[in-house]
Nucleic acid binder design. Structure first.
Lengths: 228, 228
DNA sequence: GGCTCAGTTTATCGAGCGATCACCAGAGAT
DNA sequence: ATCTCTGGTGATCGCTCGATAAACTGAGCC
C-alpha cells in the first residue's frame, strides 16, 4: 500500500508522508472529527489533529465537500465487507443460529460511536447515500431474512415480502439498532450482554413471525391474544 | 395570553408585535429552522423567516444559546402534556387497549419532522436534557408498562423491573420509535397504517413478555423454541 | 554539488457568523 | 400637538470559516 519507504524513521515528529498515506490519514481523522462535531467541524481543527497546516487539505481534496463524500464512502461501505448474503442464506444451518450470528456480526461492525454518529448526521442531512443504505438494509437484509423465515415455516417463498411482514422486520431491526443508539449516542446504561439482547429480540421476532404465519394460513384463529 | 390588542390590523405587512408575541414567534420559527438546518442555523436566516432584522433577536434573547435552550424546553416539554400516567395505569381497562392507545397518542405527539429532528440533533450534542428525557422514558413509560404487564400476568409487582425485562421493553419501544425515524427523517416508505404497526409490535412484545414470564415461573420449560 | 519535484507552510481573501451600539419610528398617554 | 416608551433598524466589530496563491524545503536523482 505504501510507496517505497526507507526504514529510517527520522525524528519523533515526522512530517512529509507519502501522498497516499497523507490522504488516508485525512479521511481517517476527518471521520473522527465529523463524528464528534458533525460535518460543521472545521478544516483547521482537522489539520490540527494531523499536526499539519490547514491549506494542506486542499492539496488532497478539491473542497471540504469532497472530503465529506470520501468519509461517507468509507463509513457506509466499510461494514459491508462481511459476507452477509451467504451467512443469512446458508440453509445447512438452523435459521435461528444464522440470524443470531448475523446480528452479532452486523452490530459488531456498526455499534461504535464513530459509525453511529456519522450515520445519524448524514441521515439528518437527507443525502442520497443514506436513502441508498436504508434501501440496502431492506433489500439485502430484511427481505432475505423474511424469505428465510418463510422457507423455514414451510410457507411459499414469494419474491417480495408483504408490507406487514416487512414492517414487522423493520420494527425488530429498529429495536436492535436503537440499542446501539442508546449505548453509543445517548450513552445511557444498557443491558451489557449484547448477544443476550439479540437473542431475546430474536425470540420475540420469531414468535411474532410464527404467529403472523399462522394467522395467514389459519384464518379461523382467535383474535389477538392478551397476556395473562 | 396577548396583551390588549386593538382589532384594527393595520397593513398587510404588520410589524411591531407585542413583546410576548414576538418572543414566541422567535421560538416557533427557530424550532423550524433548527429542525431543518441543525443548531448551526444562522440568526440572520431566522430573522428573515420572521421578516425582521437580525439584531432584533437580541432584544428578546441574551444569546443564541439561550434561544436554543428555549427551543429545547418547548420541544421536550410539549409532548408531556398528555396524561400518560393515568392512561397507562388505569386498570379498569384491558392492558392491551391501554398500551395501544398510549402509543398512538405518544407517537401522535412526537412523530413529526420537527420533533424528531430536534430530538436527534440534541441527542448528538449529548446534552443533559436529552439524558433526562431518556431517563424519563425509562422511569415514566417503560417501568410503568412493565409493572402493568407483571400485574396483568399475575406476577409479583416488584418496585424495579429486571434488566432483561427493561431491555425487552426498550427494544420494543425503540422499534416503534425507529418507525418514526424511517418515515420522517429518512423519508423512507413505511407501512402507512401507524395504528396497525403499533398493534403488531404490541402483539410480539406481549407474547415475548408472556414467554419471559413463563420462563421465570417455570424453570423446566423447554429451551428456545424455533419457528417451524 | 546542484537540480527537481512533490509535500508543506505562510499569508491572505471574501463571506458569514454572533453580538453590540446608536439611532429611528410609531402608537398611546397627557 | 407633543412627549415618551418600546419595538425595530442600520452600521459595524471581531472572529472563524473555506479556499487560493505563492514561497519554502528536503529527499532522490544526475
Amino acid at each position: 500500500m505504501n510507496r517505497k519507504m526507507p526504514v529510517k524513521r527520522v525524528r519523533t515528529k515526522q512530517k512529509r508522508l507519502s501522498a497516499d498515506d497523507r490522504r488516508s490519514e485525512f479521511v481517517t481523522k476527518a471521520t473522527e472529527l465529523f463524528a464528534e462535531e458533525g460535518f460543521g467541524g472545521g478544516t483547521r481543527a482537522l489539520a490540527r489533529k494531523l499536526g499539519v497546516t490547514q491549506p494542506l487539505l486542499y492539496r488532497y481534496f478539491p473542497s471540504k465537500d469532497d472530503l465529506i463524500k470520501e468519509v461517507y464512502r468509507k463509513v457506509y461501505l466499510e461494514p459491508l465487507e462481511i459476507g452477509w448474503e451467504k451467512l443469512l442464506s446458508d440453509r445447512s444451518r438452523p435459521l435461528r443460529a444464522r440470524l443470531q450470528e448475523f446480528y452479532e456480526v452486523y452490530t459488531d461492525a456498526i455499534f461504535n460511536r464513530r459509525w453511529l454518529r456519522i450515520y445519524l448526521y448524514s441521515g439528518l442531512k437527507g443525502l442520497d447515500i443514506n436513502r441508498w443504505y436504508v434501501g440496502m438494509v431492506k433489500d439485502k437484509i430484511l427481505t432475505r431474512i423474511l424469505r428465510e423465515c418463510r422457507h423455514d415455516a414451510g410457507l411459499a417463498t414469494q419474491s417480495r415480502p408483504s408490507a406487514a411482514e416487512l414492517e414487522l422486520a423493520w420494527v425488530f431491526h429498529g429495536g436492535i439498532f436503537y440499542y446501539g443508539v442508546r449505548k453509543y449516542i445517548y450513552e445511557a446504561p444498557v443491558l451489557e450482554d449484547k448477544a443476550q439482547m439479540i437473542s431475546d429480540a430474536l425470540d420475540i421476532f420469531l414468535a411474532g413471525f410464527e404467529r403472523m404465519a399462522e394467522s395467514a394460513t389459519d384464518r379461523r384463529r382467535a383474535p389477538i391474544q392478551v397476556v395473562g
